[in-house]
Amino acid sequence: MHIPDGFLSARVAFGYAAVSALAVGAACYRLRAQRERGASALLGVSAAFVFAAQLVNFPVAVGTSGHLIGSALAGALLGLPAALLVMTAVIIVQCFVFADGGVFALGANVFNMALVGCVVGYCCYRLLCGAAPSPTRRVASVAFSGWCAAVAGAASCAAQLSLAGVVRLPVVLPAMLGVHGLIGVGEAVVSALVVASILRFRPELLEAGPSVAPSARPGSVAVAAGLGLSLAVAGVLAPLGYSAPDGLSRVLLALGLHPSVPSPLLASLAEYGLSGVVSGVLATLLAGCLGTLFLFGLCWLLALALVPRSPRSSEPARVAVESSG
């Protein structure tokens, strides 16, 4: 999902970079206001963990393998601001050390994988999890939030590519959603496995809440949930936009993001005709809803399979955890 350089126009790149910079700045502010720089070691080493975890390959089928993205998992384990910083650090290092994802597109990449991924993942997790969840519920929520984060990130990536006028939204959105719907299944399974094993080794790490969380103010979850919901709506309902070009282009104009003259939105509309587009969108939306529900069921089954029924885990296997220096 790393967008390389050369795809985004300057306006799109700078717009997303500004939004990402604001979000990262806010996360830094939240964390620094919270504790005297004690969090920095935990942040850095957790970033190294996400980085190392992304290198572990899970065999999928003959010759292919997948790996963790980790934004939802980081959100569940570390809390929203810390996860945002951790993922941003990972993306910056991938860009400047491995040339994975462009430097000009860095803002857009941070937006997709860190901001959208963490916010959607974290909000899904918190909303599904509730206050004092059972282990099964916790594992299921982590799995489902991993899938949601991957799909939402892909949708926002598709939106950026079409805003830059590279590929039209009706072409790129189904392709990105299709591929990342599958990748997200892998992400869900791996996240569930990791959380299930953490629950076995050290349940208190998860039960005590996020490790670098700012103290839970009652409003903060609601604010984050609202933000996540609006991001999700923006991502999922973006395809609806091209049935209503007036409203969307007005919004784009107001944001200063007006697409360049041969507008991909208008061009697609002229080609397909309105009625076909609307019914197509409805069918897609219905299929999307059904798919999401199906995935949710799968996540729950996975959690049932992974969490042992008997309360055997009351005595965590601490011995295996210690490591040498």
Partner: peptide
Amino acid sequence: PVLLCDAIGLLSRYSGLLSDEA
């Protein structure tokens, strides 16, 4: 921000170590 710079520095220091451990 300092916090992000610290995280990047520690990441570059410890990523090799952790992937070795993995």
